[in-house]
Amino acid sequence: MTWRRIGSVTDSPLARLDFRAKLTLLFVATSLAFLWESPLLTGCLALLILILNLLAHVRASYLSRGLLFLLPFFALLLITHGFWNTSVGHTAIWTAPREWPLVGGSLRLTREGLAYGVMVIFRTLTLIWVTPLTIFTTDLNALTSGLVQLRLPYQIAFTFSATLRFVPLLFEEIQSITQAQRLRGLALERMGLWQRLVVYSRLAVPLILGAMVRSQQIEVALAAKAFSGSPERTYLHQSRLRVSDYVIIALCLALLAGALWLRVTRGIGRFA
């Protein structure tokens, strides 16, 4: 699993945008997700972000895996809002029979509560899907220089990108250690939860040691490449905003401004 396999750093129009344009997109999408409480609008927003992800060639399997992982959480959201969100819930679509102990007659599933739960799900999906859209479609070096252009100290920007680079390596390491354990007769598939936890805890020793060795190797390699973390350096890729970047930034900001104006003046976007 490498960075390149999750996203696609060069072969889509979105990937070619400047990181600052993508950051604006991230900011506006996040703001809208919180500004709007309408299930319809948040649904459209989540759908838009999903389509953009697919256009940017972020792997559908990556997006769907995240969705599957969150399904239990979404079910919980629907249940809690559907039954207990009393601030919005008025119209009961189901009421617990009176003969049920404790909750009989009082436990109600409301249409508004369910709709609110759906809105929160769309909001969560927007926030989850907008991250790969902006981060995974950006070359790590472009990301670093983009952050530096935003006046973040180079050392911090580099540490940020180095950490992102390290994550897939860590996953590879975990996979290789688990494989080695299975090859030592460990039948994970036949183990109970507790036994599995004990096995996973044993991952820590080789993982931490491996990570330490690797980070020192990287430190040495960086030092040999004259890396000192000093801001006194030049850049091959100069982060320059092009017309397409200005257009995207302008569109995003206009959308946010428009949404704010409509929300304040016309109440569009309120939960109803």
Binding site: V9, L140, R165
Partner: peptide, 10 residues
């Protein structure tokens, strides 16, 4: 461990 960027050129 000694290749630290994302393209040959970089």
């Amino acid at each position: 461990t000694q290749l630290v960027t994302n393209s040959v050129e970089d």
